[in-house]
Design a protein around this nucleic acid. Structure first.
Length: 468
RNA sequence: GUGGCUGUGGCGAAGUGGUUAACGCAUCGGAUUGUGAUUCCGACAUACGUGGGUUCAAGCCCCAUCAGCCACCCCA
């Protein structure tokens, strides 16, 4: 290589780019995202959940084999520097199972867990669907009760109500009841794998009744009469938009287990209705309010293998085809792969980044207005003085930025304006000598002069508090 | 894995075969060295994803390829 080529090689820039499905977050968006996380945290802590954290990287054997083959394929995996086979967590549930099994003696059951963290899935991207995204999980483990089901659902439901969604629908299904229906409809034994049937039923929303009938007809052993009746049961809605449970109950008569599950399910729904509203009218799909609706929809199956009781998913009313922004359900024995101790639980997850993508699409993301003052340093001799002012403000809880281009005061004002500071404290030689400061209102352009340094906290606080 | 669409300076975006590839944003300088936003003037930028082909001539047409987005599958 000639010297010239070597120089050229050195000057060649790496093209700045991101991996597919991985997002950068600019300051304005990041602040909203953090605020959302904090709000979710706050709601969960209020409801008595305890926050935990687990590593992003786990042994591969911990992560694999719990969901389906499909999900196993999506796990980001590699060998670490010590030759260990490791993977990035695919969700927060499986690491939680490991966590619970590992820390049984340190936890008090029933344990109410909150966890907020990023997860990774090597699948194809779509709108609101990334390869790295944040999940906010709530679980109650160590108890199997309708109260626990409700506690998790209520907290998730009420948290989503805090956001400017324009309305959402929380749909409740039950894997257990659905399985009983399928068993009876198709005359299947207890141990028959229903997965293909469940997957077909789960598409009811997308491909319609006839589409599902066609799909199910291809599955051996199912008569069209049986299929038709099952779909009738699932599709029949009462005036409130709920799956009509009366014919379901009579169809399952004699199945004691299923009947008991139905009783429990109805009790759960009554509890849920106590904190929610029902179906909104077609004319006014609750766009003005951010409230949610609660519905029974027995056709919900959810893909993940481990759900056994109640299951739920949540869609935005304004973006019906967008996908679920919050879902979960009950599982019999979360940690069975890690311990002999039986640990039933119920949990759900808010897909924060999908929710944010949805709100962004709708133009409903909150705009964050920074509430901070700015100290402009006009002359170099006032650098220490300006910093003393900034430090005083910060110690007293007043957010403030400071000019970093001492001397070039025009630049400092321009910068303060661009980052949205409503007030600028101005100090230079004169102010330094008299221990004073000027305060400029960036909106009106007015500048009041010669305030005493000793009053800086009070004056700036007062000024800032008048900003909307 | 399957389909559709899109790739033009840092970003957005015009350009439908014919000189020197618009414009806007951003950046930098000046009008204005103790005052921003607004206004005016000026400057800067290795830009047509990559590789072939057709043509006298390609950002534009054809083929391939890569990347991204959207949709299916599945899912938060």
């Amino acid at each position: 290589m000639s010297q010239n080529e070597a120089v050229k090689e050195k000057q060649k820039k790496i093209e700045p780019r991101r991996l597919k499905g991985f997002k950068d977050h600019l300051p304005g968006f990041m602040e909203v995202r953090s605020n959302f996380q904090n709000l979710i945290r706050q709601e969960a802590l209020l409801a008595g959940f305890s926050e935990i954290g687990t590593p992003t990287l786990e042994y591969l054997e911990t992560l694999l084999g719990q969901g389906s083959e499909e999900t196993d394929k999506q796990v980001y995996r590699f060998e670490d520097h010590g030759g260990r086979k490791v993977g990035l967590r695919f969700d927060l549930t499986i690491p939680f199972a490991r966590f619970v099994a590992e820390h049984q003696s340190d936890l008090i059951f029933p344990f109410k867990r909150l966890q907020i963290g990023d997860v990774w899935r090597g699948e194809n991207t779509q709108k609101g669907r990334y390869r790295e995204f944040c999940q906010c999980d709530l679980d109650i483990i160590g108890v199997d009760s309708v109260g626990a089901d409700f506690e998790v659902i209520a907290c998730l439901y009420q948290t989503i109500a805090k956001f400017n969604t324009g309305g959402y629908a929380f749909r409740l299904g039950n894997r257990n009841i659905l399985s009983s229906l399928i068993r009876k409809s198709f005359n299947l034994g207890e141990d028959i794998d229903q997965t293909p049937i469940l997957i077909a039923l789960d598409k009811l929303d997308k491909i319609g009744t006839q589409g599902v009938i066609d799909l199910l007809s291809k599955i051996a052993g199912s008569s069209s009469d049986a299929i038709g009746y099952l779909l009738q049961l699932l599709v029949n809605k009462d005036p409130d938009g709920n799956t009509d449970l009366v014919p379901v109950r009579s169809f399952l008569q004699g199945d004691e287990k299923a009947t008991a599950e139905l009783d429990r399910f109805e009790q759960l729904y009554r509890l849920c209705r106590s904190i929610s509203k029902g179906k909104s009218s077609e004319a006014n799909p609750s766009t003005s309010a951010n409230e949610g609706e609660m519905h029974i929809d027995l056709s919900i199956a959810r893909g993940l293998g481990y759900y056994t009781g109640v299951v739920f998913e949540t869609t935005l009313n304004l973006l019906p085809g967008f996908g679920s922004i919050c879902s979960g359900g009950r599982y019999d024995d979360l940690a069975e792969r890690f311990t002999t101790r039986s640990l039933p639980g119920v949990g759900g997850s808010i897909g924060l980044d999908r929710l944010l993508a949805g709100l962004e699409e709708l133009g409903r993301l909150p705009v964050v207005v920074p509430k901070k003052a700015f100290v402009a340093i006009v002359t170099a001799d006032a650098l220490e003085y300006g910093n003393a002012i900034a430090t005083t403000l910060r110690k007293n809880g007043v957010a403030c930025d400071i000019g970093l281009t001492t001397g070039k005061v025009g630049l400092q004002f321009k910068h303060a304006d661009r980052i949205g500071c409503p007030f600028v404290i101005v100090v230079g030689t004169d102010e330094l000598n008299s221990k004073t400061f000027n305060l400029k209102n960036m909106k009106t352009g007015e500048e009041s002069k010669s305030h005493s340094f000793s009053q800086v906290v009070q004056i700036v606080k007062t000024a800032m508090s008048n900003i909307p």
